[in-house]
């Protein structure tokens, strides 16, 4: 029997004689196996990033020649009130949604981790369910619920004798509607992440605290929250990165005639309009780089604040 080792084979395989003809093929097998990712990244990942750096300093209408214009676009970005208004909208939508959502998710995870619930898995699945729906579908639905005239939301207000609200045309309310889409879709998702974290906290802590007569509220604030610090940080980061890139909700809710003053124009929506509606692909790329700079900055600030605040509770 001939035993052939192919040099690169399995990690613990002993080295024996090498078979001459299959040797080369087997040696390159691992590289062939991972090559598709790197090739695709080179073409569809790395090239676009480098190219967007060049585009960000250029003028291009999508059809004609690309003209290098240097710092002009950056100057324009700094003075572009529409960009800063879009940033304001994005940050407000993010803040309106993220903080209530993560707090709610944390409380729900804590409650579900108590021993009192029998059908925990079913409850988890039901609370997670909104996350599988498409943003487009759910935004269309929310758009009808919060319709200015005859949606469910205004119907409920009428029931209580209140005046109807122009949900979709008032800058403040349209931000609330977009944030509520996010809250509805991602509370269960974050809750499930927190639940895994809670399951990892040693039972000794909460049992000892209970012995000492601590109530649930004390256990939540003094044990659960501090122990979950790294996971809370993770969810804040993820929500920030996601929140700064909100597009579909805003675009589906206010598909045409959206203005930065109107409240629904987010940075990515502004980027999309600049490039694909107004055909300013160069300046669109400048906006993209501005967005990335903000994501990095926000993540750093978040990291700092979250670490500080949770330490303060401890």
């Amino acid at each position: 029997m001939e035993v052939s080792d192919h040099g690169t084979g399995l990690q613990t395989a002993p080295k024996h004689q090498r078979h001459r003809f299959r040797f080369d093929l087997e040696k390159v097998t691992p590289y062939l196996a991972i090559a598709p990712f790197y090739l695709l990244f080179l073409v569809f990942g790395l090239f676009p990033i480098l190219f967007s750096g060049y585009l960000a300093l250029s003028k291009w209408d999508g059809i004609g020649q690309i003209q290098f214009t240097g710092w002009t676009n950056l100057q324009r970005l700094a003075q572009d009130t529409d960009f800063w208004l879009s940033l304001k909208n994005t940050v407000l939508i993010w803040a309106l949604g993220t903080f209530p959502m993560l707090f709610l998710a944390l409380v729900l995870a804590f409650m579900l981790s108590l021993k009192m619930f029998k059908h925990k898995e079913t409850l988890k699945a039901l609370l997670f369910l909104p996350n599988i729906t498409s943003v487009v579908a759910i935004t269309i639905l929310f758009g009808l619920i919060f319709s200015n005239l005859d949606g469910l939301a205004n119907g409920v207000l009428h029931l209580f004798g209140l005046r109807s609200i122009n949900w979709l045309t008032s800058p403040n309310w349209v931000r609330v509607v977009i944030a509520s889409v996010n809250v509805w879709q991602y509370t269960g998702y974050n809750m499930i992440i927190y639940l895994t974290g809670i399951a990892r906290i040693s039972k000794d802590y909460s049992e000892a605290a209970q012995m000492d007569g601590a109530n649930n509220r004390q256990i939540f604030w003094k044990i659960t929250v501090p122990q979950l610090k790294p996971i809370i940080l993770f969810t804040v980061m993820m929500s920030t990165i996601g929140g700064l890139q909100v597009f579909s909700e805003a675009q589906v809710l206010v598909p045409s005639g959206a203005t930065p003053q109107g409240g629904a124009m987010t940075i990515v929506y502004y980027l999309y309009n600049t490039a694909f509606t107004n055909h300013q692909f160069g300046y669109g790329s400048t906006i993209a780089w501005g967005l990335v700079a903000l994501i990095v900055l926000f993540s750093a600030v978040n990291w700092y604040v979250t670490t500080k605040r949770i330490q303060g509770v401890n």
Partner: peptide, 21 residues
Amino acid sequence: LLGTMMIPGQLNIIPSFYLMD
């Protein structure tokens, strides 16, 4: 490979469209 996951997707939209074109 892990590092590529950190790259924000929005950077790619416009140049990717150029490439596709």
